[in-house]
Amino acid sequence: LTQCETKGYKISTTVVDLSGQVLAQLRSDGAGIHTLESSRKKAFTAMSMKQPSGNLMKVIADNPIMQPLQYMNENLLFLAGGIPIQLNGNVIGGIG
């Protein structure tokens, strides 16, 4: 959050656990109201798919047959900005 703010971006960031539950959520003053939910969904997507949400965005863009993936679960958001959190090679959560 601080790094983005120093570059002039007003954002939200969310950390989820392995079950997709929010552990922490921060929002910059003046960040758009949509940023809380989109950061949560990016974190959920990265955690549940075990890869950065930007990778999945590219897969869907490059392979139209894969587009239905984005409708599998209402918590998924295939936009860049979500990263899985790993410990000892195991995904334990996500951050968006």
Rank of each mutant, 00 (worst) to 15 (best):
G89A: 02
K7E: 10
A43K: 08
I11M: 15
I95V: 14
R27I: 12
Y9C: 06
G32Y: 13
L26R: 13
I65V: 02
I60R: 03
G54H: 04
Q3V: 14
K42G: 00
K10M: 11
I65R: 06
I11A: 10
G89N: 03
L77Y: 03
K10G: 05
A46K: 01
I65Y: 02
A80Q: 14
G30E: 11
G81M: 11
N55C: 07
G93F: 03
K41S: 02
N55K: 12
T6N: 14
L56M: 07
K10Y: 08
I33P: 11
E37I: 13
K58L: 11
T6V: 10
S12C: 09
M47C: 08
L23G: 03
K42I: 00
C4P: 09
S28D: 14
L1V: 15
N90T: 13
M72P: 02
G81L: 10
E5S: 13
S12R: 02
A43T: 06
R40G: 08
R27A: 13
P68C: 02
L79R: 00
G20T: 03
R27N: 13
T45E: 00
Q3A: 12
F78V: 07
L1T: 12
S39Y: 01
H34R: 15
G54L: 07
N63I: 13
L36F: 10
L77K: 02
L18E: 07
I95L: 09
N63C: 08
L23D: 05
I92T: 05
M47I: 04
D62E: 12
P84I: 03
Y71K: 06
G20Q: 03
F44L: 08
I85F: 14
V22M: 13
S39K: 04
